[in-house]
């Protein structure tokens, strides 16, 4: 296998951040969406992406020693690859088939990505929280978590300026009839009846 550092285009003493940045840059460059109209190029990009994923995983394994993705390392590469290629159902099946023992922070992170893609955000957030708790130093997981909060936290505030979320407008409910309305209507009916010689409510 080629030297993974060469594949990623970083030096051996590069920091973790630099490696991640290099990986993300390459992943963007060879993303299958960029080759939607070019099947030849898409195949080549797919090969390249596979190589990059393997190199990235190998570097991670080397750096984290035995505490890395033991047991599930190579599978995570293939899961990432399936996600990159858009085979979400296959990726999910592969993740679910892994034993409890192989469910590392990476497993929870990938599971979260798949759940979010389906729109199951509550479970997705639970998984990303677990991933962050298991590996607090990982900036990729932390960024995904941050993204969740920034994307959904301020829902509605962009609509017609600042009024959405204004507590002054919260107590209002459409079409309801209050006790005051009922009393006033009864009193009016009583007045009408008395005017006509009857008595609708005797005590008023």
């Amino acid at each position: 296998m080629t030297d993974p550092y060469i594949v990623l285009g970083v030096s051996r003493d590069a920091s973790e951040e630099e490696i991640k940045a290099a990986y993300r840059k390459l992943a963007r460059r060879y993303h299958p969406d960029r080759y939607a109209n070019d099947p030849e190029g898409a195949r080549a990009a797919e090969e390249k992406m596979k190589e990059i994923n393997e190199a990235y995983d190998a570097v991670n394994r080397m750096r984290s020693g035995s505490s890395g993705h033991t047991g599930g390392g190579s599978s995570f590469v293939s899961v990432r690859e399936k996600i990159n290629r858009g085979y979400f159902a296959d990726a999910e099946r592969e993740l679910d088939s892994m034993a409890e023992g192989a469910r590392t922070a990476e497993w929870h992170y990938l599971k979260s990505a798949l759940l979010a893609r389906r729109g199951w955000h509550h479970d997705a957030m639970r998984e990303i929280e677990i991933a962050c708790a298991m590996d607090p130093a990982n900036s990729e997981y932390a960024r995904a978590r941050e993204l969740y909060h920034s994307r959904f936290g301020g829902f509605g505030s962009q609509y017609r300026g600042s009024r959405a979320g204004d507590p002054r407008f919260e107590g209002n409910r459409g079409g309801e009839c209050s006790t005051c309305d009922i009393c006033t209507t009864l009193m009016c009916m009583d007045c009408c009846c008395e005017g006509c010689g009857g008595d609708f409510i005797r005590c008023i």
Binding site: G119, H121, H122, M125, R126, H149, R151, F152, G153, F155
Partner: peptide
């Protein structure tokens, strides 16, 4: 059953965020 059995601030914050996420998808 999905959480710790309590509904304090961390659980409530998660519920808030996931409900807003549903609205985001509805939008």
């Amino acid at each position: 059953f999905g959480g710790t059995g309590d509904f304090d601030e961390p659980e409530r914050a998660a519920a808030r965020l996931s409900l807003r996420a549903e609205l985001y998808e509805l939008e």
